Amino acid sequence: MINTSILRYSIILLVSLKMVAQEEPIKLGVIGLNHGHVGWILSRESKGDVEMVGIVETNRDLAERLSKQYNFPLDMVYSTMEEMITAVRPEAVAGFGNIYDHLAIVETCAPKGIHVMVEKPMAVSLEHAKKMETLATKHNIHLLTNYETSWYPTNLRAYELYKEGTIGGLRKVIVRDGHKGPKKINVSAEFLEFLTDPILNGGGAIMDFGCYGANLMTWLQDGKKPTSVTAVTQQLQPENNPKVDDDATIILTYDNAMAILEPSWNWPIGRKDMEIYGETGAIYADNRHDLRLRISEGYDGFSENVFRLEERTPPYDEPFALFASVIRGDTKLSPYDPYSLENNMITMEILDAAVKSAKSKKTIKINN
């Protein structure tokens, strides 16, 4: 017969060990430093959930410059993923290089059981995305894609209002994203180099900002794919973006609704906004914090509620907290969550069709 005191002590010890393990920060490796969003992790204050343990960057000048700016030691910078993984054994990595390299990150990390988060879009092509999905599924790792708009409280509230039936059945969604252009907003030379490369970025504005609308629409539609994709691209700044498009319009048709995505590097004012039109009203997510709800009254009248929303609660307020929470098992992403693999596979299918449509000047049908 087992001594009850020993049994009680064993249970307490197991619970204590589990709590300690949960409190240990996730060891995170950073792959690449040339993405302009890398400052999010380099400047992130310690919250006890994530510890940056190593960096992979072949551009020594870039590494030295950012080391001085963000005060990280150069001895944590490695030339290859294999060197970094062997030296510091990360549990997870975040990709902050060009989009083409996302596949190589998953190819290296997935077989080792290392979880991966990449910046949007998930990949440069549907072909790359399918290979990434296969590896993530085979090796049972989390593969997340980070979108800034996923943290917006306005997008969450717009989603909730729509799902609550506040504006009736969905009819049209318009998503506008972009800015004046990478060169005009003075991104770093390293960031500009791959953003304007059709191989390394998969395209120009159509990929860089078209992914936001495709991602949000897939979320709103609970993973339902469009029936067709039609896209038109232009190059309005050939002097700044000689190899890629810098303006696009993408039309998605669904059985009872339509979405118009307007990704551009030609907006005079930077923006990330969404309009959702239903049968009885409209929701305007004007930016991260400001939302308007209009309910139809007569022909052109309406009642309006205006909201100023606070930041979302952790871990949904920024990418690394969410990544750590998902890895620990504390958070389970809802079906077709903007970060989720299943959402981003459909997002990539939409982008792939949009690029093909723009090149062929034809509407591309999507198989559901």
Rank of each mutant, 00 (worst) to 15 (best):
P319R: 02
S79N: 11
E193F: 04
H37P: 07
Y70H: 13
A129Q: 03
D208P: 01
H142L: 06
E275G: 06
Y147V: 03
P242T: 00
Y299G: 00
L14F: 14
V106S: 09
I31F: 12
S228V: 06
L7H: 04
S303K: 11
V15Y: 00
I6A: 10
I327W: 13
Y78I: 01
Y100H: 09
P182Y: 03
S16V: 13
P198W: 10
G113L: 05
P315L: 03
E279H: 04
G204L: 01
L333S: 02
N215S: 05
Y152D: 08
N201Q: 05
I199S: 01
Q234R: 12
K131E: 07
S125V: 01
E164V: 05
E160F: 06
E304Y: 07
G29K: 04
D208C: 15
D300Y: 09
K138T: 15
I174D: 05
L126R: 08
V20T: 06
I346Q: 07
T196V: 01
F191M: 13
P111D: 01
E57Y: 00
A282L: 14
M76C: 10
S334A: 12
E190D: 08
E297H: 04
G36A: 09
G169D: 11
K332M: 05
L293Y: 07
Y212C: 09
E193Q: 08
T134F: 12
I167T: 01
K243S: 06
L195R: 13
T230N: 04
D245M: 05
L252P: 02
V53Y: 02
L62H: 02
W40T: 14
L309M: 02
K359A: 12
I141A: 06
A321Y: 06
L236I: 05
F323G: 10
L14Y: 08
T58R: 14
K163S: 11
I26S: 06
M345N: 05
K184P: 00
Y284K: 13
I199K: 08
D75Y: 12
T86I: 12
S16A: 13
D286Y: 14
L293M: 08
I350V: 15
T108A: 09
R328Q: 10
R176K: 14
L66N: 08
P182D: 04
L13A: 15
V244E: 04
G203W: 01
T363A: 15
L62F: 02
T230E: 03
V232T: 09
L135E: 13
P90C: 02
A358M: 09
D286S: 15
A231T: 08
I295M: 03
T363M: 14
M217G: 00
S16Y: 11
G181R: 10
